[in-house]
C-alpha cells in the first residue's frame, strides 16, 4: 500500500485524483474512480448550476465514497456553481484558471477541502496561503489548459515553495509516473488522459479511438495568442487553428473557431471540427479498462518500482 499525506487528508485508498475534464468528467466517471479507490472529480466547466446539481446527484446515486468538483474560475457561471458545491457539501473542490480567493470563506464554511491547480511557483505561494488544503502542480505535458513549465521542473519547485501537500499532474499515466512524482516531492497524482479510456468514461468512441492511436508526438498546443493555451490531439481543427493563429485573423474570429469544439469532440465525436483534449502521455494509453483496474494497475506498478529503488544504492 502507498499511503501519503494525501490519503490522510482525504479518505481515499490510493493517492490519485481523476482530472476535471470538461464534457468528459461527469458524475458517472467520478463515481467509478471514487469506487475504484481514487478521487473522482466532476467538471463544472462552463455549465450552469442545474447541470452540476444533476451530475452530483448521479455520482451520489453510484457511490458513497467522497468525490470532488472542479470549478473553472473563468466560467460565466462560476458564482452559481461555487454556491452549488457549498450547498451540496461536496468533499473536495479543485479549481482551475485563476484564483479562488473570493469563494474561500464560503467553501471552508461548507467544510470542503479546497485544492487549487497551479502552474507556477508564484501561483502556489499566492493560493497556498489563502486557505487551500493542498495544491495540484500541473505541468505543461497535460491536456487542456496548460502552462509552460513541465511537471519534472514544476513539482519540486512548488514543493520548495509551500508546506502544503502537493499533487503532481501532467505527463503521468502509469506506475512509473506515480513513482517519479513521489520522488519529486509530490504526495499524490492527478491523471486525466488515462481515464479517457476508462470503461465508465462516456465520451464518443471516435475520441477513444483517437487516444488509442496517439503516439508521443500526437498533441499540439493552440490558443497561445489568446492567452489560454490548450493541448489537444492533432486534428483538422487544431491544425487549422495552429496555422491561423499566426495569420492576420482577429482574436474574435479565433475565439469563435474554438466555440463548442470540446462538446463536438466528446459528445459528437466530430473528427473534423472537434477539439480532442489529451496530454502528451496519450501515446501510453493502450487499452480500455474499468477505472478500478486502471488505478490498481498503476499503484501495483508504482509499489514494485518504489520497493526496488534500493538496488541503485551501492
Amino acid at each position: 500500500m502507498i499511503k501519503t499525506a494525501l490519503t490522510e487528508l482525504i479518505p481515499i485508498e490510493y493517492p490519485i485524483f481523476q482530472g476535471g475534464m470538461a464534457w468528459i468528467a461527469d458524475g458517472k466517471l467520478a463515481a467509478a474512480v471514487s469506487n475504484g479507490g481514487g478521487l473522482g472529480i466532476i467538471a463544472a466547466m462552463n455549465a450552469d448550476a442545474d447541470y452540476l446539481r444533476q451530475q452530483i446527484a448521479v455520482a451520489r446515486s453510484l457511490t458513497d465514497k467522497p468525490f470532488g468538483v472542479n470549478i473553472m474560475l473563468m466560467s460565466p457561471n462560476a458564482d452559481a456553481v461555487a454556491q452549488v458545491v457549498a450547498d451540496e457539501k461536496v468533499a473536495v473542490i479543485t479549481t482551475g484558471a485563476g484564483n479562488p480567493a473570493k469563494y474561500m470563506d464560503l467553501w471552508q464554511q461548507a467544510g470542503a477541502c479546497v485544492i487549487p491547480v497551479v502552474a507556477s511557483v508564484a501561483m502556489a505561494k499566492m493560493l497556498g496561503r489563502s486557505g487551500a488544503a493542498a495544491l495540484i502542480a500541473e505541468g505543461g505535458e497535460s491536456g487542456g489548459h496548460v502552462g509552460d513549465t513541465t511537471t519534472m521542473a514544476l513539482v519540486p519547485q512548488v514543493c520548495d515553495a509551500t508546506t502544503l501537500p502537493v499533487i503532481a499532474a501532467g505527463g503521468i499515466a502509469d506506475g512509473r509516473g506515480v513513482a517519479a512524482a513521489l520522488m519529486l516531492g509530490a504526495c499524490g497524482v492527478q491523471l486525466g488522459t488515462r481515464f479517457l479510456l476508462a470503461e465508465e468514461c462516456s465520451i464518443h468512441t471516435n475520441y477513444k479511438e483517437k487516444v488509442l492511436k496517439a503516439t508521443d508526438i500526437s498533441t499540439i498546443i493552440t490558443g497561445k495568442r489568446l492567452g489560454h493555451p490548450v493541448r489537444s490531439l492533432k486534428s483538422p481543427f487544431s491544425n487549422a487553428v495552429f496555422k491561423l493563429e499566426y495569420s492576420q485573423i482577429s482574436d474574435a474570429e479565433l475565439e469563435e473557431m474554438a466555440r463548442d469544439t470540446l462538446r463536438l469532440a466528446a459528445v459528437e465525436g466530430d473528427m473534423q471540427k472537434g477539439c480532442f483534449l489529451a496530454g502528451q502521455v496519450a501515446g501510453m494509453v493502450k487499452k480500455s479498462q474499468p477505472a478500478r483496474q486502471i488505478i490498481q494497475e498503476i499503484f501495483d506498478e508504482a509499489e514494485l518500482i518504489l520497493k526496488g529503488v534500493n538496488r541503485w544504492i551501492k
Binding site: G98, N99, A101, K102, A119, S120, V121, A122, M123, K125, M126, R129, S130, G147, G227
Partner: peptide, 25 residues
C-alpha cells in the same frame, strides 16, 4: 499573462512588506 501577474504580485509583496490578496482579475 496571469502567471506573470502572480509572480509580480509576489515580488511586490516582498518589496512593500505587505500581503496582497487578489480576489478579482
Amino acid at each position: 499573462d496571469s502567471l506573470d501577474t502572480a509572480e509580480m504580485v509576489i515580488e511586490l509583496e516582498e518589496e512593500l512588506g505587505i500581503e496582497i490578496q487578489l480576489k478579482e482579475k
